[in-house]
Computed example of a mutant assay.
Amino acid sequence: MTLTLNSLLAALAGLAAVGGLVVAVAGGVGWAPSTMVRRRSRLERKVRSFFVKDARTPTSWWARGQTRLVGSALAGLGVWLFTGWLAGGLVTVAVVIGLPWLLNTSGSGKGQIDKLEAVEEWVRRMSDIHTVGVSLEATIQRSLETVPKAIREEVRLLVSRQQAGWVPQDAYRAFADDLNDAVVDEVAALLILHVEDRGSGLSKAMRALAEALQHEVLARREVEADRQKPRTNDRWVTIFCLGIFGVTAFSGTYVEPYDTFAGQVVLVFVGVAFVLVKIWMRRMAIIEPAPRFLSSADRSGGRTAEETP
Score class of each variant (00 low, 15 high):
92 T>R: 01
30 G>I: 10
301 G>K: 08
38 R>D: 08
181 D>S: 12
219 A>W: 09
107 G>F: 06
96 V>H: 04
206 M>T: 02
189 A>G: 08
32 A>W: 13
276 L>I: 10
188 A>E: 01
128 D>F: 08
189 A>Y: 04
11 A>T: 12
9 L>C: 02
220 R>C: 01
31 W>T: 09
206 M>Q: 14
200 S>N: 14
44 E>R: 10
157 L>C: 05
72 S>H: 00
157 L>F: 07
139 T>Q: 04
282 R>Q: 11
99 L>N: 01
239 I>W: 03
111 G>L: 10
87 A>N: 03
209 L>C: 03
14 G>A: 15
116 L>P: 07
48 R>E: 14
285 A>V: 08
244 I>L: 15
64 R>D: 13
118 A>G: 14
264 Q>R: 03
45 R>A: 09
201 G>W: 00
223 V>D: 12
269 F>E: 04
205 A>E: 15
182 A>W: 07
245 F>C: 11
136 L>S: 07
156 R>A: 15
3 L>Y: 12
127 S>W: 04
171 A>G: 08
166 W>F: 14
299 R>C: 07
162 Q>T: 07
240 F>I: 11
79 V>A: 04
64 R>N: 11
43 L>V: 11
133 G>I: 09
213 L>N: 01
245 F>V: 15
78 G>W: 07
222 E>Y: 10
252 G>A: 06
55 A>F: 07
228 Q>C: 00
194 H>V: 02
201 G>Q: 08
277 V>D: 05
230 P>A: 01
226 D>R: 15
258 Y>H: 00
186 E>L: 10
178 D>G: 05
45 R>V: 13
239 I>Q: 06
170 D>L: 03
181 D>E: 13
95 V>M: 09
101 W>V: 13
153 E>V: 11
49 S>N: 12
189 A>D: 13
248 T>A: 11
164 A>T: 09
94 A>M: 12
31 W>S: 06
33 P>I: 07
299 R>Q: 13
297 A>L: 04
163 Q>N: 14
4 T>W: 04
109 G>T: 13
164 A>D: 14
94 A>K: 02
23 V>R: 06
249 A>P: 07
142 R>C: 01
2 T>S: 09
127 S>K: 03
149 K>M: 10
77 L>H: 02
303 R>G: 00
233 N>C: 06
160 S>D: 15
126 M>W: 00
159 V>W: 02
248 T>W: 12
278 K>G: 06
252 G>E: 09
123 V>N: 00
28 G>V: 06
202 L>T: 03
92 T>Q: 06
33 P>Y: 05
196 E>I: 01
259 D>I: 03
70 V>A: 12
14 G>N: 09
15 L>D: 04
253 T>R: 12
224 E>C: 00
195 V>C: 07
303 R>Y: 10
275 V>C: 04
134 V>S: 03
131 T>F: 03
201 G>P: 12
251 S>G: 08
221 R>T: 04
153 E>C: 01
84 G>P: 11
2 T>W: 04
197 D>I: 12
267 L>T: 05
3 L>H: 11
304 T>Q: 08
64 R>F: 05
12 L>P: 05
135 S>A: 06
218 L>Q: 15
27 G>H: 13
126 M>T: 10
190 L>T: 13
156 R>K: 14
